[in-house]
Amino acid sequence: MHDSGKILAGLVVFGALVTFPVWYHAAWGGPLVKPRLPADLAEKECIAPTAYMREHHMELLNSWRAQVVRDGHRSWTGENGRQWRASLTKTCLRCHANKADFCDTCHSSAGVKPVCFDCHVDPKGKN
């Protein structure tokens, strides 16, 4: 091979970049943390099925914000006909009381920074 020093150096850099997640995780990686709920919940069922909430909760919260803040409607009807109060603090946080144990686990591991708590207060956290 001609210019083998330069070519091998380039290939080593390429290999290191491709395998970055593997050695990064070996050196600095930690375990994935799953969200936790308190033992005594205020409600038996969530406002929507878990699978739906996992994928679409941000859309729902966004539509709640729009209907409450812009239109002044506080009431929201779930799929089974039950009426809920459209409120992050007074509905969601009653069960999902601990932001650090519930919201933050997925959000920090997914690298997402929602803007909810720019305005809202986290009742159990340091504000």
Binding site: F20, P21, Y24, H25, W28, G29, G30, P31, L32, S108, S109, A110, G111, K113
Partner: peptide, 14 residues
């Protein structure tokens, strides 16, 4: 996309 492949998420990805 490195936010999916690093835990805790690498600073540059965030």
């Amino acid at each position: 996309h490195m936010r999916y492949f690093t835990e805790p998420v690498a600073g540059f990805a965030t």
